[in-house]
């Protein structure tokens, strides 16, 4: 298992979980989101290719109402 931080909360995930699989599990596939991994933006086109590593810090954001 690996431990990653998703939006500030620790999560245990199986080894070699991919970014795309995580997004799928979060119910966000096809949604307008943006993802930052350890401070670097991961383009949506690269979700399928990237695998998560132990200690990764992820931010997954959406658009909400604001002024």
């Amino acid at each position: 298992m690996i431990t990653v931080s998703i939006n500030g909360a620790a999560r245990q995930l199986p080894d070699s979980t991919g970014v795309a699989a995580l997004i799928e599990e979060m119910g966000l596939t096809g949604k307008r989101i943006a993802l930052e991994r350890n401070g670097e933006i991961v383009p949506r086109s690269l979700f399928a290719a990237q695998q998560l590593a132990d200690g990764d810090k992820l931010e997954v954001v959406v658009a909400v109402g604001g002024g």
């Binding site: 979060m26 658009a63 909400v64 109402g65």
Partner: peptide, 20 residues
């Protein structure tokens, strides 16, 4: 129109429409 960028809520109902 302005919008804000916020963390996606884990456990949010994925069928709810989004602002966009």
């Amino acid at each position: 129109i302005t919008i804000a960028i916020r963390r996606s809520n884990i456990g949010q109902n994925p069928n709810e429409p989004s602002l966009l």
